[in-house]
Design a protein around this nucleic acid. Structure first.
Length: 652
RNA sequence: GCCGCUUUAGCUCAGCUGGUAGAGCACAUCAUUCGUAAUGAUGGGGUCACAGGUUCGAGUCCUGUAAGCGGCACCA
């Protein structure tokens, strides 16, 4: 007998091996009918699973949040069945649930197109309407392999072979069709319902390895209710509206063109935004860091010494004198990173342990030959500006420096309103320099710091491990922010490097007068300022806070009678440091309001005869139809206050 | 880089199964001086991404190249 505890606390005895379905049916047929799975001690399993030991039971129905994953997973199976019904010979591989839905990867001569969706969805609806029960069987390895071999499912055979011997091979059947699957699943495919949609097709490598064959992936999503699906689709639309590429065009911030793939043409307003960010970051450095600037081009031997030429060459641009008669035949590399330059500055002169830590910062423009398919607006480019710094310190100072950087990063992100931040620790990659002992040591320090960060800032920080994802010269922390469309972007980073200073023969004189290589910490707060700008644009949906907005105020006149007053106002505002434009065109005020609203100008100051006479202004804020009247002095004072960057506000 | 798709005026897009380019917005000129999301009239503007090919004839079909988009892989 087993003792089963119900959610209300009641306990009942059942023969061992009783299924959840039997228990539910014993309570009421309607409960059995609407229950799609059960949770035993909080773990969701098949309703038909036998209960072998005492457990707390919960019956999961379609409305249960935990059912969503099952609905999507079952939907992926139905997708696979539909595809094989429509195109026999298509091989199935895997079909997992992901954050906002599911996908299924197929192997097929001709990939799917979105036009196929109509037919596939129709077939899926047929399959769901048939409501075949989902039943589980455990097969032997041999049976599974021979079954899938006979079916010509080479990928499934490979999957079976890769499952550890001590694990059961579970097969889920839905009518005639079946799939190898870990489960759990609902009781029948009819429980999926009709609130599902195929979203897009894409190529994806088998098992995520670029040397493997390319599969054809179909993405889909499913919800318990149609309203939820509709809401999700609407949310996607809204996210697309705040795509930085779209806003960049609408707000006239930047553009791209064929001649410079992966490089940004910053327009006046975009560049002002960018420079406002730079100015902010520069202020945040003062006191702790010394700003430097190292050459854009250096002889490639510099990069041979650093190891980049060996490990990173595929990603580098190089350059030579273009003249026909030049005597300089040397090959120069365009810097993909700032570190070697900073090491040269460190090396210039003799350093004492008393000088450490030395922190060199640079708004360094780097060029990296990124794969063509990687480019994405200003988020992923081939030429970008890092808010980079390199800290030369002793081993004893390392942990403290990591913490100092962490505090700065969190403070900066906080100023921009980012709440949820993921910090990942990436450990040694396969391609790397340095001894295992060095890596052991560096990783141990980083691990300790990560735990401490988590303990201090667990409320806003989520931490995780990224095994094998470190830089070739050392482990790193990655600070990840999420864009409007739910894509994650690495921004800040802290990378410990026990390698580069030694390679360049950099050292300091220790208390015992010995030449000692310093520990080097590479660090960036925004990471790429271009990317960070893009994230800001999306984060604020173009409605930048006043201090960041490239044009803060537009003074618009109603008639020409107010022109002189408008210019007087503008002069007064500029004198106080506000970024103001005039709009004295011969256009209706409606037209001007509309135009500047679309351009996302945060503040419109409207002046006509009345205001000119009284020395007042009528203020209209972006996103609101309300108008506030106040005196010129009041208006300027409050705008100046609001336009003060958050870090400057903190000073007094 | 890989799979698929896309590329027509400054922008957003029409252009059926091949018969020598169209709209809206924007821009220019003129009129209008009008109190909070589009005043009206007139006008200019495209070797249809680029290079080949098929055809009597290509924006439309085929091939290649480039850039972009959605993913994958890579990454700040």
């Amino acid at each position: 007998m087993v003792s089963v505890t119900f959610p209300d606390g009641a306990q009942r005895q059942f023969p061992a091996g009783v299924t959840g379905f039997e228990i539910a049916k014993g309570i009421s047929p309607s409960l059995a009918k609407r229950t799609i799975a059960m949770a035993l001690d909080g773990v969701v399993v098949d309703l038909a699973d036998p209960i072998q030991q005492d457990a707390k039971i919960e019956f999961v129905d379609r409305e249960d949040p935990r059912a969503l994953e099952l609905i999507r997973h079952d939907c992926a199976h139905v997708l696979a069945e539909a595809v094989q019904a429509l195109w026999p010979g298509t091989q199935v591989t895997i079909g997992p649930v992901i954050e906002n839905g599911f996908y299924y990867d197929f192997f097929r001569e001709t990939p799917f197109t979105p036009e196929d969706f109509v037919a596939i969805e129709k077939k899926m609806r047929e399959i769901i309407a048939r409501d075949a029960p989902l039943t589980k069987e455990v097969w032997s390895r041999e049976d599974a392999i021979s079954f899938f071999e006979k079916k010509g499912e080479a990928f499934k055979v490979e999957l079976v072979q890769s499952i550890p011997g001590n694990e059961d091979l579970k097969i889920y059947k839905q009518g005639e069709w079946l799939d190898l699957c870990r489960g759990p699943h609902m009781t029948s495919v009819g429980k999926i319902g009709t609130a599902f949609k195929l979203m897009k097709v894409a190529g994806a490598y088998w098992r995520g390895k670029s040397e493997n064959p390319m599969l054809s992936r179909i993405y889909g999503t499913a919800f318990a209710k149609q309203e939820q699906l509709d809401a999700y689709l609407k949310q996607i639309e809204e996210a697309e509206r705040r795509d930085h590429r779209r806003l960049g065009r609408e707000m006239d911030l930047f553009h791209f063109q064929e001649e410079a793939p992966g490089a940004i043409f910053w327009h006046p307003k975009g560049w002002t935004l960018f420079q406002t960010l730079v100015a902010y970051m520069r202020r945040r450095l003062s006191g702790d860091y010394q700003e430097v600037n190292a050459p854009q081009l250096m002889d490639k031997n510099m990069w041979e010494i650093s190891g980049h030429w060996g490990w990173y060459r595929e990603n580098m641009f190089m350059s030579k004198s273009a003249g026909d008669d030049t005597e300089d035949e040397r090959t120069y590399a365009i810097k993909p990173m700032n570190c070697p330059g900073h090491v040269q500055i460190f090396k210039h002169g003799l350093r004492s342990y008393r000088d450490l830590p030395i922190r060199f910062a640079e708004f360094g423009v780097v060029h990296r030959y990124e794969p063509s398919g990687a480019m994405h607006g200003v988020m992923r480019v081939r030429a970008f500006t890092q808010d980079d710094a390199h800290i030369f310190c002793t081993e004893e100072q390392l942990a403290e420096e990591c913490h100092k950087i962490n505090e700065l990063i969190l403070s900066v992100y906080g100023d921009f309103g980012f709440g949820r931040i993921v910090v990942k620790l990436s450990t040694r990659p396969e391609k790397r320099v340095g001894t295992d002992a060095m890596w052991d040591h560096a990783e141990a320090v980083m691990m300790r710091v990560l735990d401490e960060i988590k303990a201090r800032h667990g409320d806003i920080i989520e931490t995780s491990l990224n095994p094998g994802e470190g830089a070739f010269y050392g482990p790193k922390f990655e600070y990840v922010l999420r864009d409007a469309i739910g894509r994650d972007w690495q921004c800040g980073t802290t990378q410990v490097d026990f390698n580069l200073p030694e390679r360049f023969g950099a050292f300091y004189i220790s208390p015992t007068s010995e030449k000692t290589p310093p520990v080097m910490v590479h660090r960036a707060i925004c990471g790429s300022l271009e990317r960070f700008t893009g994230i800001l644009i999306e984060h604020f949906a173009g409605h930048m806070p006043l201090w960041l907005s490239p044009v803060q105020v537009v003074v618009a006149t109603i008639t020409q009678d107010a022109d002189d007053y408008a210019f007087e106002l503008i002069a007064a505002m500029r004198k106080r440091g506000l970024r103001v434009d005039a709009d004295v065109r011969n256009e209706k005020i409606n037209y001007k309001v509309r135009e500047h609203s679309l351009a996302k100008i945060p503040v419109m100051v409207v002046v006509g005869k009345k205001e000119a006479l009284e020395k007042t202004v009528s203020i209209r804020r972006l996103g609101s139809q309300a108008q506030t009247a106040m005196t010129m002095e009041e208006a300027i004072a409050s705008l100046v206050e609001e336009a003060t960057p958050p870090d400057v506000k903190r000073i007094d």
